[in-house]
Design a protein around this nucleic acid. Structure first.
Lengths: 198, 198
DNA sequence: CTCCCATGTGAATCCATCTTCACATCATAA
DNA sequence: TTATGATGTGAAGATGGATTCACATGGGAG
């Protein structure tokens, strides 16, 4: 029999594995059997720790949110200034996607409505929260004079989000052939030119 | 009994309805019963015109591709120059999303793998085809001197695609409250500043 | 050391779809 | 007008995955 674990540790293990599966296949392809297998359990064992599939997804979404928001906070703290924070954030997103943690893929896939329908609302809230955090960085940049004051911070934040999303799709489509780090660098140049005060 | 129709007309009606349903709920929530109902048929009738669910999705993807590529061609033909074509294209995407035809939503949702797995490859091909077409517009702009020649056309094309994708998500999340036309205008200003030769 | 409850298992069972099938009906071609 | 094949219908069957449940087992409190 698989080693027993207390529920708390097991839940973390499971949500972590779920995040990987979601990045690979989206929520449609996500199923309990594969999830169980990926943590070395039998499907029914999942129900010792979660109420059901939807509950797993919900908990996984929490993990996801914390990681993504954590990325923004880390970038903010480590960078010297807001513009550099944005660049750092972009780089880290790219690296995350490169290593398989397809953030935007998850976003898109989880927001598809299902009949129980608490999940899409939650996903969307995570996205708007993300955009709001980026927007704050942009506004900070405006206050510090690095970013042009005549641009709309919301537009800039959405544009920033948009730099990452297609990259994840392409990465999925083309795999290794798509050099996502190079993409990040190229697109950052464009973004900087659009928003930076020169 | 529902009026009979010849298969060709019925297929068009069905794929059209499928596109609407996909935009609303993604491929996960897409089911034959609802599709049948939305064209006033009984589920089994769908099988008179398609081999099965996957076949419906495949055919719908064709319709989708033609519409999206058609949008690019139309913009190219109607505009005076490449840059204007891009702006026109962006506006039309926005309008399409506003009226419920959530293009990027469909993209993301259809690319999720399933076990038969021909669909994701096809979806991704549509996306890369779209990016390639936008990239051509960018290069045309470079040749005509409107667009800076020192930017990477692929990066620019992906950035362009990225202007639309988050907008569709937000539109889904916030509905009417999110003014997508205003977003398009704001983000276009940024894009233009990034790529236009001034 | 031993008992017990949280955790793990395998075999049902449930359930929502998709899919098939025998039968009905309409469009249309001759 | 009528025969025929294409299209529509309802009910039954097949499928795949989620969920439940009775039973097994091991880690740790006492």
């Amino acid at each position: 029999m698989t080693q027993k674990m207390n529920t708390e540790a097991r839940r973390e293990q499971i949500t972590g594995a779920a995040l990987v599966l979601l990045a690979e296949r989206g929520s449609e392809g996500f199923n309990i059997a594969d999830l169980a297998e990926s943590v070395g359990l039998v499907p029914s064992a999942i129900y010792r720790h979660f109420e059901g599939r939807e509950d797993v997804l919900d908990a996984t979404l929490d993990v996801f949110r914390d990681r993504v928001y954590g990325l923004v906070e880390a970038a903010r703290n480590e960078a010297e200034d807001p513009l550099q924070a944005l660049e750092l954030l972009l780089t880290r997103h790219a690296r995350l996607i490169e290593s398989g943690g397809a953030v935007p893929h998850i976003m898109a896939s989880m927001s598809a409505p299902d009949r129980h329908a608490a999940r899409p609302a939650k996903t969307q809230k995570i996205f708007t929260g993300y955009v709001a955090r980026v927007e704050r960085l942009v506004r900070d940049g405006q206050e510090s004079g690095q970013v042009r004051s005549d641009i709309d911070s919301t537009s800039a934040a959405l544009l920033f989000a948009g730099m990452i999303q297609p990259a994840a799709l392409l990465r999925h489509a083309e795999g290794e052939r798509f050099d996502i780090m190079a993409h990040a660098a190229g697109v950052w140049e464009l973004f900087r030119r659009a928003v930076a005060r020169d």
